[in-house]
Simulated scan of single mutants.
Amino acid sequence: MRPDQMTATERAALERLLEHARGDTHQSRRVADFLLAWWNAGACGAYDLTTGWAVDEAIAEDLCVVFRLATRANSYPDTLGYGPQFEAVVRSWRPELVKEH
Rank of each mutant, 00 (worst) to 15 (best):
V55T: 06
T7F: 14
R68A: 12
T71S: 13
L69D: 01
S92W: 10
S28N: 02
A13S: 11
A88V: 05
R72Q: 07
L18A: 06
M1S: 12
L36K: 11
A32P: 07
R72D: 15
H26R: 08
V31A: 04
D78S: 06
A37W: 06
Q5V: 01
A12V: 11
L17H: 06
T71F: 06
L17M: 09
V65Y: 02
V31T: 07
P95D: 09
R16A: 05
R30E: 02
D56P: 04
T51M: 12
F34R: 05
A43E: 13
G81N: 09
C64G: 14
Y76T: 12
A32E: 10
R29F: 00
W53T: 10
A21V: 15
F67R: 13
E19Q: 11
V89R: 06
D48A: 07
D24N: 09
Q5D: 10
E87M: 12
N40P: 08
D24P: 02
T79W: 07
Q5G: 05
A8P: 00
W93P: 02
Q85W: 11
T51N: 01
A54H: 02
V55F: 03
T25S: 09
V31S: 08
D24G: 14
G83V: 01
W93K: 02
V90I: 05
S75F: 03
D78G: 08
E100F: 11
F67E: 12
D24W: 08
A73H: 00
V55D: 10
Y76R: 07
A58N: 04
R91W: 11
A73E: 02
H101S: 13
T7P: 08
E10N: 02
E57T: 14
R22Q: 04
H101P: 06
A13T: 09
L18K: 05
L97W: 12
A8D: 15
L69I: 06
A54T: 10
G52L: 05
Y47G: 12
E19L: 11
E87A: 15
P3Y: 12
H26T: 03
F67G: 04
T9W: 02
E100I: 14
R22C: 04
Y76H: 06
A37R: 07
A54V: 02
P95V: 08
E19D: 04
A60F: 08
R68H: 08
L69E: 04
E96S: 12
R29E: 15
A58P: 00
I59N: 01
S75Q: 03
W38V: 13
L97Q: 14
C44I: 15
L80F: 01
L49R: 09
F34Y: 13
T71A: 15
T79F: 05
N40S: 14
L36Q: 09
R2M: 10
T50K: 03
I59T: 15
A88H: 03
P3A: 09
F86H: 01
V31P: 00
G45H: 03
T9P: 00
G52E: 03
Y47C: 05
D4V: 14
N74L: 14
W39M: 14
R94C: 01
L97R: 08
Q85K: 09
S92L: 14
E57A: 14
P77W: 11
D62L: 04
L80I: 00
V90L: 14
P84D: 11
C44V: 07
A12E: 12
E57L: 13
A58W: 04
W39A: 08
V89I: 12
R91A: 15
T71Y: 10
E15I: 11
R68P: 08
R29P: 00
V31F: 02
Q27E: 15
L36H: 07
